[in-house]
Design a protein around this nucleic acid. Sequence first.
DNA 1: AATGAATGAGCCTTCATTCAT
DNA 2: GATGAATGAAGGCTCATTCAT
Lengths: 207, 207, 207, 207
Amino acid sequence: MQNIALLERIYPGRRAELKRQILNCALQQFIQQGIESTTIEMIRDAAETSVGAIYHHFKHKEGIVSALYISALKDQATQRMQALQQSQNLKHGLYAVIHSYLDWVEQYPDFARFLYAASYSVQQGIHAETLKQENLQRNLQLGQWLALQPDAEYMIAVPVELRLSLMIGPTESYCRAWLSGRVSPLPTDYANVLAQAAWQSLNAFQM
Amino acid sequence: MQNIALLERIYPGRRAELKRQILNCALQQFIQQGIESTTIEMIRDAAETSVGAIYHHFKHKEGIVSALYISALKDQATQRMQALQQSQNLKHGLYAVIHSYLDWVEQYPDFARFLYAASYSVQQGIHAETLKQENLQRNLQLGQWLALQPDAEYMIAVPVELRLSLMIGPTESYCRAWLSGRVSPLPTDYANVLAQAAWQSLNAFQM
Amino acid sequence: MQNIALLERIYPGRRAELKRQILNCALQQFIQQGIESTTIEMIRDAAETSVGAIYHHFKHKEGIVSALYISALKDQATQRMQALQQSQNLKHGLYAVIHSYLDWVEQYPDFARFLYAASYSVQQGIHAETLKQENLQRNLQLGQWLALQPDAEYMIAVPVELRLSLMIGPTESYCRAWLSGRVSPLPTDYANVLAQAAWQSLNAFQM
Amino acid sequence: MQNIALLERIYPGRRAELKRQILNCALQQFIQQGIESTTIEMIRDAAETSVGAIYHHFKHKEGIVSALYISALKDQATQRMQALQQSQNLKHGLYAVIHSYLDWVEQYPDFARFLYAASYSVQQGIHAETLKQENLQRNLQLGQWLALQPDAEYMIAVPVELRLSLMIGPTESYCRAWLSGRVSPLPTDYANVLAQAAWQSLNAFQM
DNA sequence: AATGAATGAGCCTTCATTCAT
DNA sequence: GATGAATGAAGGCTCATTCAT
């Protein structure tokens, strides 16, 4: 299973085996029947453990949700940063970010689906503030990277608040459609055109 | 309250007053604490009715959710169609759709928030199939309108599955950000640039 | 059942019938197996209702405990006050209080047992502060009554903090012994000697 | 810590160090949050051991409760017996018992509080019968001692069942009040008056 | 002797829904 | 049409206890 690979990156070692097992099974259940509709019992059945073991590793049900959410976000961010660091300028960076996003979604569709489904539920959870901060941090990082590029002035006319939406909006929109089954062509098939389109859309501000 | 205006369009007449009252209060609760976390009791308290009255007007809790969801979608679609019908060509149509979308979100932020929050929950509900069909229908309608325009060939090179994402992706992305408080400038402030950007992004396929 | 009589005084009317029924059954269970060991299920079985009905009338399990505790205390206090109001001086008052206490314990042994058993659990509960205040109030009332009697000077030499313990200590001690089965003669059999002994014990301060 | 001194008397030696440590920490937790509300985990945290170690020294949770209860009772009884053995007659004995009781409560308020709190819970435990026997035994011992005194006839008119309540009732009542914070003067401050009052109260039977 | 992960029965509580008045 | 007391299935979570290491 692909998901296990991701989880092993976040929770390495043999001692965390059960933890990964629980998380992986919970993930499946969450995307199959929804987070709220998934009971601890279901997770226990799927993971072939005991209720106690689940609560031993994660304090609450929300602990499981948080762990999955944070894992996914972390992994996604790591991959994006790696992609960015190999880019030499704005345009390459944009392409890299979009490619990395699409790759990740295609590689971990379960996690991607979960990320979309959980975003609402997580915003109201206990770690809401923490996650908000981390998200802000990530966006700032991206902003800083952009500002340091040789062709940074290309973006100068684009309102800061709009940038992220213009760059990633269509990509995200397509991923949502793909994950929900509304469209079938693989996201990565459109990676280049989505990147190109995003780049073009920034052109609207060049005069 | 703005929301009442929308509801009056969908459920007109004095006999539906309590219905609107219940729906409006339920809407508030739903976006405040989440759909699943809102109990019938809470809605009763807010709407100052009885449990029985609620069940008299809506068969289930999901009946309330559906009613709200369908109302919002219907209203949004109506407004979009009106905007489209006044447009003479593709470019104008694109502008009209984006303007209409941003206007609606800004006018009914509660409904918009609810729409995003409910989308997942509704997909698993009883009316899932119906709603899916209606959504498909709406997209088809839009597609047909596009095909009938004098400058329809401008889109010919754009893969069908990608079209919606390119046109509405950044707009939707920005609305989400605004509704969640991540950015503050009003969506309509960026209506023109978002439309222009969308138009430009289609340029990527023109060679 | 005697207990019902007490409960009818506190919760009168036909609409509270189920409430009384639940409280009475809960009381039995509480003194039979202890408060913590009694489950809601047991109470439901005994009272022949539904879990929901119990939670409809009392918000928590502790709500039941509180209701019983407060009912008992209120009834006991009422009876004591009635006894006091018919007394003309300190000595008569002391006799009246002791008689009233013993009467009450003998008439409502279940409530009395519960009062002793719950005192600890209730002190840590939500209403701890309220109950503490009410208790203080009651003691103050008693103190005021004492101060108004013609022979009030008899007590003048007795430290305030000690008064209650000297007056009611042996009586309470005997009641505990009787309720737990350590002794068998009825408390009221010793009413006069207990009152006399209490009066004599105050003599220790008369020189 | 005072409590350790008591525990060292009951469980002497270096080998029992951990045992004492566990008991002392458990005691604190018990009086802080109640016996039932204290979990083994809490005790483990406080005592800085492992769950296994606790179960190695005490078979059950109740084993800890029993050990504490019996320790306290034993220590209290020992101290009382020592006091009695130095008394020459009834009056001196009464004074000695009351002084000893007040001293002990003041010296080990934690244990005293625990004794009051646990009495109910222990009565329903596994060792209920044993403890009841021991208690009876102790009371008998006291009765025998009383009967052997030169001035034993002073008590002859006092009903047997009443004796303990008259002698110790006010003292116990005051200790409860002090331990719960309702009154502040130290119990030993009132030792003499409480003893004198108890002696006087027996006078009520002298005619 | 010590450790702490794992077990699982059982408890309190919630809440959508029904129905007699 | 309106009311709200009553129902009861089901879920999250606790915690004493065991046992492999």
